[in-house]
Design a protein around this nucleic acid. Structure first.
Lengths: 147, 147
DNA sequence: ACTGATCGTCAGTTTTACTGATGATTACTC
DNA sequence: GAGTAATCATCAGTAAAACTGACGATCAGT
């Protein structure tokens, strides 16, 4: 019907940032999802566990705001992390409405492995561009999303 | 509870490509959605219309494969484009199962305006980084998603 | 003519995230 | 101090998006 094969980049979209970001995000996630799942972590759970391990005990809503995830959505995310034994729901002694979520030692152990897996996925995904450009890509993205 | 304000970049995630791409994509889409919607175009419809205007008449599935959108999902996308009078569903004379989708003149007119809107959104989104870096960002993304 | 594949469509399901309400607790106001 | 308003986690219901599997119509190859 025309000269374009099915899986090349449509020229009409190749200069549109939204399309480029969307496809890149999708391609990257496809790579990262499987190895993380084999550790018992979804993408969102991985992110939540990372933040918890790094920023000490956090309430559920605060963790949610930190990740831009809705408060009601965080319930299921933390449920899953707790069910797998990675995170514990203690009560915040200074505000007994809120939890003091904390990554336990098993959570930290799995997080180290997940980090490796994520870095491997990043490396595979970034393979087409030179090392210096990889660092710069991250820098540019960071600056674009910094508030 | 700790020293982090709610809307700064979590350090634990700031080196994770998946997170950076996801947040960038989200932030960009928030900017682009509103102006496109005021022209009667969703993000996906905008993309489909762009490809159709650029790559001549296409069948629905071929358009779908081109955009990595499922065949059943394309039905609604083209429905919407047709309902707004931007695209016409002719039959492909060489294969009467398939459509020959074609952007009509109104579709092309609206596409020009949508393109401007999208470029404005891109520019706003890219404002935090220098001009040369903007071009490079697009180049890097293109190379990462090229098959 | 016959078989198997493909095109667009639809009904139904799954996934995902949200709104709005709840009980428990806290902070504020007087 | 008592009463009111706000906040925390949760849940039920809802909305949006994309998929599965089926369908009739059409095509390609035998």
């Amino acid at each position: 019907m025309n000269e374009f094969s099915d899986d090349t980049l449509p020229p009409a979209l190749s200069d549109r940032l939204g399309y480029l970001l969307g496809q890149a995000h999708l391609a990257h996630r496809r790579r990262a999802e499987v190895p993380l799942a084999s550790l018992g972590l979804g993408v969102k759970e991985f992110g939540a566990l990372s933040v918890l391990a790094d920023e000490g005990p956090l309430s559920q809503q605060r963790l949610g705001k930190r990740m831009r995830v809705d408060r009601t959505t965080m319930v299921a995310v933390v449920d899953e992390l707790e069910r797998n034994g990675f995170v514990e729901r203690e009560r915040d002694p200074d505000d007994r409405r809120a939890y003091a979520l904390r990554a336990n030692s098993q959570g930290r152990r799995v997080l180290r492995r997940a980090d490796e897996a994520a870095r491997r996925a990043d490396a595979e995904f970034l393979a087409p561009i030179p090392t210096a450009d990889r660092r710069q890509l991250k820098n540019l993205l960071r600056r674009l999303i910094s508030p």
